[in-house]
Computed example of a mutant assay.
Amino acid sequence: MTIGSLLRQYRQEAGKTQRAWIGDIVSPSFYSKIEKNTTRISAQDLIEILRFNHIDLASFFSKLDYRSKSEDELKKNVISKSIDAYYKFDIDQLSAIKDAIAKSAVHNKEDLILKLNTLIYTANSSPEKLSLKEKQQLKNKFYNEDNLDQESLKNFCNYMYFFDFTSNLTITKKIFKKFSRSNDEKIQFLVLGILINMIGISIKHQSYENATQMIKMSKKVPTKPSTCFSKMVLFLLENLISYHYEPLQVYLDNCEMQVKQLSLIGMEKFSQHCQKLIDENTN
C-alpha cells in the first residue's frame, strides 16, 4: 500500500473530510493529489499530518508496502524523517522508525536499520554502543579513499563519530584537500558538516590545535545561503576555541548570541546541544 492510499484509508476510518484531516498543514487541492498518488508528500508534511491526527508513526510505516514500485521514494522519506528527528534529538521517534522498518517487508532493511542505529547512538551521545560488527559494516560502506564522491562524503559526515580520532582527522584532511575548491553547493555543505564534526571531536579530545586548523580550513569554503547554517555553527565553535586560549567575556557573549539565533530559527534542540557543549568547555 502506498503512502497516499494508506493516508486515505486512515482518514476514511476516522470519518474525516480531507480538509478536517489536514488542518492547515497543506492545501486541500495538494492533499487530494497525494491520496490519488499523483504527487509526493514531503517527510515533514507527512509526519505533521500523522501527529495532527494522533497516528502512531511505527504503526503507519508497518502497514506500507515497501515492495511496491515506490520503494525508493519510501526509503527517502524514512531517511528524511530520521534526519529530522535526529536534529531534534528525538530518540523516541528514531526508535519508532527503526521498529517500523524492522517489522516491514522493505528490501535490504538491514542497511536502514544500521543508519538508524548510528543516528540513535549519536543523538544519545553513546556511539560506543554500536557493535564491532556494525562499525566494520560502516567502514566497508562509507569510505573508499580511492573513489571519494558525494555519497561517501555524506556517509562519512553521518558516521565519523563511530571511528577513532586519528582516522577521522586523516580522512577529513584528505576530503578537504580534494573538495576545498569545489563549486558544488551540496559538496560545500557536506565538507562544512565534516569540518564541524571534526572540530567537535577535537574539542572533546582537548585537541584545540587541530580544532583551530579545522576552523581555518572552513573559512576557505564560501558563505552562501546553502552554507549559512553551517557558518553559524562554525562561528560559535570559533569563539568557543578562542575562549579556551583567552577567556574573555566577548567570546562567551558571541557563543550565547549564536545559541539564541539557532533557537530563533527553529533549531531549539540543536541550540540546547550547543549550549551544553559551551557549558562543558567553559566551566
Rank of each mutant, 00 (worst) to 15 (best):
S207P: 01
I113A: 06
I194A: 04
N239I: 04
Q137L: 14
Q136Y: 09
L190T: 03
H205D: 09
S207A: 14
P222E: 06
K115M: 14
N197R: 07
V233T: 07
K103I: 05
F163G: 01
P222H: 00
K174V: 00
S180R: 10
T223V: 12
L190G: 03
F142C: 15
K109G: 03
E145Q: 08
E145M: 08
T118F: 07
I101Q: 04
L148M: 14
M232Q: 14
F162I: 06
D184V: 09
Y159L: 03
N197T: 02
N183I: 04
Y159I: 05
L130P: 03
Y161R: 09
F156M: 01
S167A: 13
F163H: 01
A211K: 03
L237D: 01
V233N: 02
N158I: 05
N168H: 01
A102E: 13
Q136G: 00
P225H: 08
K174S: 05
D164Q: 14
N155K: 15
N124T: 07
E145W: 02
Y161W: 12
K186R: 09
S202D: 05
F176W: 06
K141P: 05
F189Y: 13
L192Y: 07
I175Y: 04
I196A: 09
D164C: 01
N117W: 01
Q206F: 11
K139P: 02
N124A: 09
D146S: 13
I203R: 08
D149R: 03
L116S: 06
Y143F: 15
I171K: 04
S180D: 02
S230D: 09
Q213R: 04
L234F: 04
V233R: 06
N168A: 07
K177C: 01
E134P: 03
Y121S: 05
M198Q: 15
M214L: 10
L112I: 10
D149P: 08
Y208T: 00
S230M: 09
V233F: 07
I187N: 02
L119A: 09
F235R: 13
Q213Y: 11
L192W: 04
L112T: 03
L192C: 02
I215S: 03
M160H: 09
Y208P: 02
N239K: 06
E185A: 12
L153A: 07
N155L: 15
I120L: 06
P222M: 02
E238C: 03
K135Y: 04
E145D: 13
S226M: 10
N183Y: 04
K109H: 02
R181H: 10
L169R: 12
M232H: 11
P222C: 05
E128I: 10
I187F: 06
K115Y: 14
V233H: 08
S126L: 10
K204P: 09
V106G: 13
S131G: 05
K216C: 01
D111S: 14
K173F: 05
